[in-house]
Design a protein around this nucleic acid. Structure first.
Lengths: 130, 130
DNA sequence: TATTACGTTTACGTTAACGTAAAGATAGAA
DNA sequence: TTCTATCTTTACGTTAACGTAAACGTAATA
């Protein structure tokens, strides 16, 4: 039935995770699905949060860290003092991410060097120099 | 004494990790220090490997993944067939890293948007509109 | 010589992020 | 109504990456 909501297995299939994982995320307060009786009903907002959690995972963030980042997106904090705090946190996360990018670039450079010497070795072989 | 080697605590201090961590990495075959008696002697090469391991950690790689990447750097594989395999692996890792970069950029864009609306809210407040 | 600093091995403990199994409720199809 | 699918809760198990403690060896220093 079209309810505008997702069942637990809907999301599990879509994102190729287990239902246990979804229940675990709720248990940890990362997702807060509604209930119809005892059955969980996930909203579009829950789905977005899930996307962010999984993206965080791919970047090597812990669930706690992902939660911190996700919480930054919620503009419930309409108070100015809180907003400044929010901006500070965003700045922190930005620096962390920029650092990650730099490390990735360093790794890519290293790989490129190794690749180059591999290719050199290969072409030397195909030159039939020996 | 200048031996051209590092003691376990030398490396522990330099990289701000525990000696347990270094022993653990050896146990897992990620580092292979020599021994003088029972005491570990780490070489400059060990130190480089350690750097790569820690960089991998910061990027959210498991020790197993870090090992795979590090192994790519070792040009012991002078055989052509092996070299081609090596190039394939490098390509795989490159794609993985490029993907990570894309995800980071996505995250940075999201943060930027949130930041923008925060700033908008703040300046609206300081306008004293209410 | 006794203490301090540093090294060793062995082994049990811990946290995160789930996996897996048991036992049961509910709703629609055969 | 019985079967099948899908949901629930509860709870013990598992892996990675170390932490922590015990018990010991060695070497320089007070």
């Amino acid at each position: 039935m079209m309810t505008g909501h997702f069942s637990i297995s809907d999301l599990a299939k879509e994102f190729e995770i287990s239902t246990r994982t979804l229940r675990f995320y709720e248990e940890k307060g990362l997702l807060t699905p509604q209930r119809r009786g005892s059955t969980r009903l996930f909203s579009a907002a829950d789905r977005v949060r899930l996307k962010l959690i999984l993206r965080g995972k791919r970047l090597g963030f812990s669930l706690q860290e992902s939660r911190e980042i996700i919480d930054l997106y919620e503009p419930e904090t309409a108070n100015a003092r809180q907003l400044q705090l929010l901006l500070d946190k965003i700045q922190q996360k930005r620096e962390l991410l920029e650092n990650q990018k730099r490390e990735i670039d360093a790794m890519l450079r290293d790989l490129k060097r190794t690749e180059a010497s591999c290719l050199a070795a290969l072409t030397a072989d195909s030159d039939g120099k020996d």
